[in-house]
Design a protein around this nucleic acid. Structure first.
Length: 229
DNA sequence: GCGACAG
DNA sequence: ATCTTGTCGC
């Protein structure tokens, strides 16, 4: 079976959705859902990707955890090699993201990623897949749910999301927004810690600051590119 | 079997 | 996600 048409690129002929799903399930066994990061966080990154006709543009921005100011950011342009297929987002966004991240001069303590972590049918959303590749802590932050059942909201304004008796993430209600954001463990972090970090960057907004900045920069880069095309 | 489905 | 103007709300 071939992936449904999406985006400009076609998946390679040799590609199979079934094999990709099996690979996700195998890789998910290596995901660590406990804290393997410093107690004192200094730098947090945000990663985002945007697309033109046939190019992917990725931005990674690193914020100072204390001051919330931008420490450094990098941009990478790569050729788009894979279409968007629901449940297979990482196959599209991993390479462009990796390209920008490897340009960083510092190693952030944790990466906020635009998409799901283990809140995924095969427990391997983009954030988890990226974490495994980087061997670094990652957190999935999605604007819409992908799978799981939303439970009751608690005092801290988040509701657990479960699937087959597993807590796979949380719907987090922020200050002035009716719509929750969907937070899940990417890699090398606990859900509790992931929520604390996301909340730290969510003051007054729905989307945490590292991702807002990354999205703003990536859009700016795309506009620049499209002007000369 | 059918539909829904992160970005 | 992207293509797009005005417009409603804080």
């Amino acid at each position: 079976m071939s992936p449904r048409k999406a985006g400009r690129r076609k998946a390679p002929e040799s590609f199979s959705v079934e094999k990709a799903h099996a690979a996700q399930l195998a890789m998910s066994k290596h995901v660590i859902t406990e804290d393997h990061l410093p107690n004192e966080i200094r730098h947090v990154a945000g990663v985002d990707v945007t697309y033109t006709k046939d190019q992917s543009i990725s931005v990674v921005v690193v914020l100072n955890h204390e001051s919330l100011s931008i420490n450094e950011y990098k941009v990478a342009y790569t050729k788009t090699k894979f279409p968007y297929v629901p449940t297979l987002l990482s196959f599209r966004e991993l390479h462009p993201s990796f390209a920008s991240i490897k340009k960083l001069e510092q190693h952030p303590d944790v990466f906020l990623v635009d998409g799901q972590g283990i809140m995924h049918q095969n427990r391997l959303g983009f954030a988890s897949h990226l974490g495994l590749v980087l061997k670094a802590p990652t957190i999935g932050v999605a604007k819409r749910p992908l799978t799981g059942k939303v439970g009751e909201y608690n005092e801290a304004n988040w509701a657990p999301i479960t699937d087959k008796n597993d807590i796979i993430g949380a719907a987090l209600l922020t200050e002035r927004s009716k719509k929750p954001i969907y937070v899940s463990v990417g890699h090398m972090i606990s859900l509790k810690r992931a929520l604390d970090i996301v909340k730290h960057y969510t003051n007054d907004h729905r989307i945490p600051k590292p991702l807002r900045i990354a999205h703003r920069l990536v859009t700016k880069e795309r506009r620049k590119l499209q002007k000369v095309e």
